[in-house]
Design a protein around this nucleic acid. Structure first.
Length: 516
RNA sequence: GGCCCGUUCGUCUAGGGGUUAGGACACCAGAUUUUCAUUCUGGUAACAGGGGUUCGAUUCCCCUACGGGCUACCA
């Protein structure tokens, strides 16, 4: 099996927006394939027509693309040699394998209705036991094991609905090696006779994923831990179909847990604690409910992916900031954690902050230009939108934000003059001589030839000295005049940025206001 | 209930028979900074419990506890 080309897949079902846990599963499958020079494909498992949600498939594809997870084959990407990649379009393929299993005695037809089974379950529950369609109960139920052959044919001919169930052996130990957990074994007695083919002719996940993985030459099936209990049934199906040698290696990923308390991460937690649970915004077409996404929240896809990768995996070194190619290189399935990982929204922000810091100013400037223009009603000829101005503004703002979309709020005063001034600072700091000082400063600034941070600062200090003031006496006031606020970016950096004209104008405006 | 998986600072984790049990987030303190932020330095804080095995267990084994998952003609 080791000579085979590595092929992994992500196989979501389009029943709603893709959860971040799902994205992580896709990411790990992708990284694993790429690490080993293999293929990664996207297969849509839409065998449950009742749970189909319009737009979900597109959402999944768009999410993966936003994250930079590119499938070599699959729905929404390029068709490969195993198309179609949507299970509903492969419906005809599955029945023959189910029938093959019946022929070989490893599966059987069952005619029990959902209502009958439901009643049995309820009954069992009341008796404080559990009903399962399995070795112990199948001989008491309505199926081709208990019915006469004629009866079975008659029922089928009459169009009676039936399912095909796996006939699990009575007393076997089923063992397989999970890539993450090592050897895992189950007693066959506890695995139930899973439905392989449903009454509507669609396969269940159990049959469909195996047939497709086999046909699509998947070598490694990476999926969530919730599948571990049904893995023995899957092993059996491979065995009975005669594909055991081609069976992919399974890896069951630990779950993503809610930040507080216990249990797996759900949409509710995001709403409750105020963080996104989905990669992109999602508007539910039926309920009209809106869910926010990382993309719209302002996360960089690289940061989102980096954060996700570290939820349950780490490279074993102290490096934490990784790009996608670096992740591909470092990824190792053995380094995946066994226990579930609680999601920490604070650390997620930190990842974004780190990626923001490492981005070139000009790149960020280009990203925010349009929204800055809208926010401050600027047009393309305004100096504030120039590369030089914006990049410098970004460099000033960068250490103060975690997201680039915060810049326009945090640094509004770089783009537009303040209209109000922090009264507290003024009343505390304003004293005799200040008026004289700022009047002189305005004059000196208007005469300053080489306008830059250092010269502005030097001039400021010189004027202060000639007025017998310490810089500290008037610095705070100057900041308030420039920004309206007590805090903010580097003062003389801001002065240099907005320029001589704007600086003297702001001094003058502030002076008039204070004088009143 | 049954079956399966899991358990190192509050959180994400490194480590792995002999370590001062390391890092990151968060938090706290100090330094720098005209302010806030940044940055720097330092700090609080963990091997679930009990039995083995061993000269020695956080590390290996067993049990218990706790947590999680599954137990559909859903995936």
């Amino acid at each position: 099996m080791s000579e085979r080309k590595i092929r992994t897949r992500f196989a979501p079902s389009p029943t709603g927006p893709l959860h971040m846990g799902g994205v992580r599963t896709a990411l790990y499958s992708y990284l694993f394939a790429k690490k080993h020079g293999g293929d990664f494909l996207l297969r849509i498992e839409d065998t449950d027509q009742n749970r189909f949600v319009a737009g979900a498939e597109e959402y999944i594809i768009e999410s993966l693309k936003w994250c930079g997870i590119v499938a070599d084959e699959g729905v929404g990407f390029s068709d490969g040699p195993f198309a179609p990649y949507r299970q509903s379009e492969r419906k005809e393929i599955y029945r023959q394998y189910a029938e093959q299993l019946v022929q070989s005695g490893h599966a059987y037809y069952a005619f029990d209705t959902s209502e009958e089974l439901e009643a049995l379950r309820k009954q069992a529950e009341e008796a404080k036991t559990a009903f399962s369609y399995s070795t112990e109960s199948r001989m008491t139920l309505t199926n081709s094991l208990t019915l006469l052959e004629d009866d079975v044919s008659r029922r089928k001919a009459a169009g009676e609905q039936y399912v095909i169930r796996l006939k699990v052996p009575e007393n076997e130990t089923i063992t397989f090696t999970d890539l993450i957990r090592g050897e895992v074994s189950f007693q066959s007695a506890v695995v139930d006779d899973k439905v392989l083919l449903k009454g509507d002719g669609m396969p269940t996940y159990h049959l469909a994923h195996i047939v497709d993985d086999y046909l699509m030459k998947i070598t490694h099936a990476i999926r969530g831990e919730e599948w571990l209990p049904s893995a023995p049934a899957h092993i059996l199906i491979y065995r009975y179909l005669g594909w055991e040698n081609e069976m992919p290696d399974y890896a069951h990923l630990p779950l993503l847990l809610k930040p507080d308390g216990n249990g797996k991460l759900s949409k509710r937690d995001g709403d409750r604690l105020g963080f996104p649970v989905f990669p992109l915004d999602w508007n539910d077409p039926i309920t009209g409910e809106k869910s926010s996404g990382y993309r719209e929240r302002g996360y960089y896809p690289e940061a989102f992916v980096n954060m996700l990768a570290f939820l349950g995996w780490n490279p074993g070194t102290e490096k934490e900031i990784f790009s996608m190619p670096e992740l591909m290189d470092a990824f190792a399935i053995e380094q995946i954690q066994h226990a579930g990982a609680k999601f920490d929204p604070e650390k997620a922000k930190w990842f974004n902050e780190q990626h923001l810091r490492s981005k070139p100013d000009i790149e960020i400037a280009n990203n925010i230009r349009a929204s800055i223009a809208t926010e401050f009603s600027l047009n393309e000829n305004d100096a504030q939108l120039s590369d030089a101005f914006l990049a410098k503004a970004v460099s000033l703002l960068k250490p103060r934000v975690q997201f680039e979309n915060e810049m326009q709020t945090v640094g509004s005063y770089l783009f537009v003059a303040p209209t109000t001034f922090d009264e507290q600072v003024i009343s505390k700091k304003w004293k005799e001589g200040c008026m004289q000082f700022f009047t002189e400063l305005e004059i000196e600034y208007s005469k300053l030839n080489d306008w830059n941070t250092d010269n502005c600062k030097l001039t400021f200090e010189a004027v202060a000295a000639s007025n017998s003031l310490k810089p500290g006496d008037v610095l705070q006031l100057f900041r308030v005049m420039m920004s309206g606020q007590a805090g903010g970016v580097d003062l003389f950096g801001m002065v240099e940025l907005v320029g001589a004209g704007e600086t003297t104008k702001r001094i003058e405006t502030a002076l008039q206001k204070i004088n009143r």
